[in-house]
Design a protein around this nucleic acid. Structure first.
Length: 566
RNA sequence: UGGGGAAUGGUGUAAUUGGCAACACAGCAGUUUCUGGUACUGUUAUUCAGGGUUCGAGUCCUUGUUCCCCAACCA
């Protein structure tokens, strides 16, 4: 299903680059990419961009893309995340052409290559503590200081390194460092740490290693082992590229030398994409879990009814550049709406019910109110979705703000004396209303008469009404709970501008409405299905609760628009 | 403080590489409409600043300004 947004000509310097490589025969026309998440959290909308680029580029140039877990730090990693990430990539719509890879598969090879460096005097064991190493590294514009251990002989280093692996030293006491240049202007090149000792159970290698490679020692080599040609990552790794190349330069590598290229990560307004902060929200119980519909995790978005295809279209549209930018959530939502407008079923639901009584509605012979069934289209955009029967009777519910006692100009809905259409049913004219006896002035009931000659919603005499309203039959309606969300996580609740800064981890972005009245067909909605509540927006049926609906996106800013005109 | 990256309407992305600054989102106005939605049409608004080269500069040169990233035994 493709949205009606015209295919954009988004800039994509990476595709241009790959194309140029192919023309020049750089990798003999071969294209291989990889998506390398660390399994320490769940994928979010930011990752979706990277996935679309990594898998998309491979697909477009008849290459392959590997899903590789960068599991070099056992402290925070877990199979829970591995499984979730695999599932989320699949949900987004990308198939794995090759089995899942793990950096931990290469631990032995990486160790051997480290020995190779040690033998050539290109790496040394340092037994200073972390603070000292950090201080010696120097600062921006300030030279570093060489470690006193920097000039140990290759034999001594080889021996120490073996003993590190053998578990002779305590955690944090020894590291292996590359011997590069402590005066280098790029801080990453000031003798970076390649291995650290950490007695921590690894989710795949168990306790067989006490030694773990750092990202910098694992990443480029993993790319090389797998045959990656284009190693695409985000801008913050820019300064690591020199080290990436240095490692590859000093190793006897098979095949092509992979090349790293960086692009700007995705940022969205109203959205938190820091894995650390998301983890905090989950850990602190601010949200229900990683799939809380307020979160921009792929699971959260899925539960909230975002179609994977809309996310992919969005990523294709925004393109790839090296400019840091923060896209508006409205753009993403417009892709969601475009998609959902084609695919979602229409249903009638009343979020804030107001009773409407048709005073001239006929009774049955036994004195009970007559019930009439109407056929209503499931989706006018797609007649193939068919029709359903909806019950209509004397007492109905309409939306509370679809009636006003004193209506402003240009208010087209129900007001004393006015006539409107009840969708798919009859024209009704308002003849009166009842105020509650609590003195608040709130209307508790509206009385109308109906025009029997307007059955099905078309008047026999051809007269028109300015408004069509949704309704549910009081005797048939189900009670539901509807969760309204204001953007993704960072709230912009009407009347309570919280801004975009994410200083307050407890900011609430959800309003739960209970006592909503929905038509019976919604009770049978499949879990996870997205429906359009007429005029209100798109809502996803919660997969775990029978009559709980999450608002996916609204139809524009429906209430804001209405109130502005009212 | 050193190095690297980036600056185009309100937002984001383009511009055949020196040749009429466009596309989308948001906004506004209108047409259609069994929902004030959808669809369609119209419309507002843009090259960070100064200087230079040129018939011609978003694009080239120069000076400046602003923003982002880098000093984990994280990735």
């Amino acid at each position: 299903m493709s949205p009606t947004n015209p295919a954009p000509a988004a800039s994509d310097f990476i595709r241009d680059l790959v194309r140029a490589d192919n023309e020049q025969g750089t990798f003999a026309g071969r294209v291989q990419t990889r998506f390398p998440p660390e399994p320490n959290g769940y994928l979010h909308i930011g990752h979706a961009k990277a996935i679309c680029i990594d898998f998309g580029v491979a697909e477009e140039f008849d290459g392959v893309c590997t899903l590789r877990f960068d599991d070099t730090n056992p402290d925070t990693e877990d199979t829970e995340y591995v499984d979730a990430i695999i599932a989320d990539v699949a949900w987004l719509g990308f198939e794995l052409a090759v089995p899942v890879r793990y950096a931990s598969d290469y631990f032995e090879q990486l160790y051997v290559w480290a020995e190779h460096l040690v033998e050539r005097g290109l790496a040394y064991v340092d037994d200073q503590d972390g603070d000292m190493i950090s201080v010696q590294r120097g600062g921006y514009g300030m030279p570093g200081v060489e470690s006193p251990n920097r000039d140990r002989t290759a034999d001594v280093n080889a021996d120490l390194f073996r003993r590190m692996r053998a578990g002779e030293f305590a955690d944090g006491t020894h590291v292996l460092r590359a011997k590069i240049d402590m005066q280098h202007e790029n801080m990453q090149m000031r003798d970076p740490v390649l291995y650290r000792i950490r007695r921590q159970h690894h989710h795949r290698t168990g306790d067989s290693w006490v030694l773990y490679p750092t990202y910098d020692w694992a990443h480029g080599q993993s790319d090389a082992i797998e045959g990656v040609t284009h190693s695409l990552c985000t801008l913050e790794f820019d300064s690591h590229r020199a080290l990436y190349d240095w490692c590859l330069d000093h190793l006897p590598l098979p095949g092509d030398r992979p090349r790293q290229t960086e692009f700007a990560r995705l940022e969205l307004t109203h959205t938190v994409t820091s894995k650390r902060r998301l983890a905090t929200l989950v850990a602190d119980g601010v949200v229900d879990g990683w799939d809380d519909p307020r979160l921009p995790t792929l699971r959260g978005l899925r539960r909230r009814g975002y179609p994977a295809s809309a996310i992919r279209e969005f990523c294709a549209f925004i393109g790839v550049s090296r400019t840091n930018s923060r896209h508006q959530i409205e753009l993403l939502e417009s892709f969601v709406r475009t998609e959902l407008n084609q695919t979602s079923l229409r249903r009638m639901a009343v979020l804030r019910p107001l009773r409407l009584v048709i005073t001239n509605w006929p009774d049955n012979a036994d004195g009970t109110a007559l019930v009439e069934l109407f056929e209503v289209s499931n989706n006018p955009e797609n007649p193939a979705d068919g029709v359903r029967q909806v019950a209509f009777s004397k007492t109905l519910y309409i939306e509370r703000d679809d009636f006003m006692v004193e209506a402003p100009p240009k208010y087209f809905r129900l007001t004393p004396g006015s006539e409107v259409r009840l969708r798919g049913a009859y024209f009704v004219r308002c003849t009166g209303f009842t105020l509650g006896d609590d003195g608040s002035g709130d209307v508790v009931e509206v009385q109308c008469t109906y025009d029997p000659d307007s059955r099905g919603g078309t008047a026999a005499d051809g007269r028109k009404v300015k408004s069509t309203m949704h309704w549910v039959s009081a005797d048939h309606a189900l009670d539901a709970t509807v969760a309204l969300y204001y953007r993704l996580f960072t709230a912009e609740v009407p009347g309570e501008a919280t801004g975009e800064a994410f200083d307050d981890l407890n900011s609430e972005s959800r309003e739960l409405l209970s006592g909503c009245k929905v038509e019976p067909a919604l009770g049978a909605t499949e879990a996870g299905q997205v429906v359009q509540f007429e005029r209100l927006g798109y809502f996803a049926h919660d997969p775990r609760q029978p009559l709980l609906f999450h608002r996916t996106v609204g139809l524009r800013d429906e209430w804001a628009n209405i109130q502005k005109r009212a």
